[in-house]
Write a protein that binds this DNA or RNA. Structure first.
Lengths: 207, 207
DNA sequence: TAGATTGTTAATCGATTAACAATC
DNA sequence: TAGATTGTTAATCGATTAACAATC
C-alpha cells in the first residue's frame, strides 16, 4: 500500500512536521511541506493520501494527527534498543548523536575488538568485548545495530551479529555486508559514496 | 545519457571494482558485481553499457578500464578541495575519515563559530573562525563543504557558504538547507532518517 | 457563498527485468 | 568449435506530475 519511494520520504515528512510543531504550528498544507523539502505539492498529497484521508479540503492537514500516523507507520512511536559495534572516531561521534534518542532509539551497548578500549566509558556505557554481544542482544532484545568497524572487519562482524539474532544493521563500513540468504535488513551509509555523488552533481551543474 | 539511478550506483561499482583490484583481479563479470552489490546482472550490464562497449562478450569487463571510466565520469580522477564547517563530535570524526582522501577529497580547512575551538588543531589543520571562510574558499578554490553544524545554525551557515561561492554541500544537519533559487548543490545525510528507514524495514520484515 | 486545498484520475515519464542474438 | 557473457530489445513495472472535481 505504501510504495518504497513514499516510505523513503516518510522520515523527512516527520522531521519537517516535528519542526513545524515546535514552532507552534498546528496545521500545514501540501504546498508548504513541498517547498520545505523540495518536492512537488502533488507528490506530498499523493504520499500522504496513502494513509487515507488525513487532510481537510480547503484547510490542510492536522500536524499532530499526521505525526502520530507517520510515527506509528515507521515504528517511531515505540522505543528501539540499539547497540554500537565499533568504537572508533565515527562510532564515538555516532554514540553522542542527539538525533537518535530524539526519535526513540536507545543506545544500550557499545562493543569493540580492541582490548585497550574494553572497559572504557562511552557516555553512560562501558565498552565491552565483541564476544559479549550475543548475551546482550538476547537479554535486552536488541533489534538494531550501528556498525562502524573498519571495512576489513565489517563482513565478519555483521555475520556475528546476524547469528546473535540482530534484525537490522545500519552499516557505515564501505563494503556490502548483506549475505545472499540473510534475514538481516541492512541500510548502508557510505560517506565517501555520498561525497562522490555530490562531486558528480557539482561537475554536471557547471556544464 | 546516464540516468539518475545509474549515477547513484556508480560510486558503488567503483568501490567494488577497487576492492577487486586490490585483491589482484583484472577482470570481472556482470554477475559477480551484481552478487556483491545485491543488484541483478541485467542492471549491471545496462548501467555499464551507458559508457559504450567496455566489456568483451564471453569474457567480461577489464577492471582497470572500468575504474578509469567511472572515475573520470564522477570526477574522482582529480583532486577536490573540501572544507569542514562545524567541528563538533561528528565533524571531528568526519575530518579523520580515511575514505575521503582515498577518493581524491582533500580537507583544506576547518571552521567553527565557537570561540573556544578557534585556534585548536584538527589533524594538520587549525580550526578557524567561520568569518574567515570566504577568504579560504576563494584562495584555495574550494568547491565542496561538509556541513556538520547544529540544525539551528545550518540554514544560516549554508547561506554564508553559498555567498562565499561554494558549489556543493554535504549536509549532515537534519534540516533542509537548499534555498529555492539557489545554485548550490546539496546532498543530505540525515543519520536519524537512515535509522528510521532501517527500523521500518525491520518492522515490515517481521510481518 | 467564494476561496482554498485536498484526494484522485489519467497521462507521462523513468527504471528495471527477462530474454536472446551477437560475439568473444 | 563450444561455452560464456555482453549489449540491447521489448515488455513490464513503478513513480511522478498536471489537472480538476470534490468538498471543507
Amino acid at each position: 500500500m505504501l510504495s518504497d519511494a513514499t516510505i523513503g520520504r516518510l522520515p523527512l515528512y516527520l522531521r519537517e512536521l516535528q519542526q513545524l510543531q515546535r514552532q507552534g504550528q498546528t496545521r500545514v498544507q501540501s504546498g508548504i511541506l513541498a517547498r520545505r523539502l523540495g518536492f512537488t505539492d502533488s507528490q506530498v498529497r499523493r504520499d500522504l493520501s496513502s494513509f487515507g484521508s488525513l487532510g481537510q479540503r480547503g484547510v490542510g492537514y492536522d500536524i499532530r494527527g499526521l505525526i502520530a500516523t507517520i510515527q506509528n507507520t515507521l515504528g517511531s512511536d515505540r522505543a528501539w534498543n540499539v547497540i554500537l559495534v565499533g568504537v572508533g572516531n565515527l562510532g564515538r561521534a555516532l554514540s553522542g548523536y542527539r538525533g537518535f534518542e530524539q526519535q526513540g532509539f536507545r543506545l544500550v551497548g557499545a562493543f569493540d575488538i580492541d582490548q585497550s578500549k574494553i572497559g572504557m566509558k562511552l557516555g553512560q556505557l562501558t565498552i565491552q568485548s565483541i564476544d559479549a554481544v550475543d548475551e546482550l542482544i538476547q537479554r535486552e532484545s536488541v533489534e538494531l545495530a550501528i556498525l562502524s568497524v573498519p571495512a576489513a572487519a565489517a563482513v565478519q562482524v555483521a555475520q556475528k551479529l546476524e547469528i546473535a539474532g540482530i534484525a537490522g544493521i545500519l552499516n557505515f563500513a564501505p563494503v556490502t555486508v548483506n549475505q545472499p540468504r540473510s534475514h538481516v535488513t541492512v541500510v548502508n551509509v557510505d560517506l565517501a559514496v555520498e561525497l562522490q555523488r555530490l562531486a558528480y552533481a557539482v561537475l554536471r551543474s557547471k556544464e
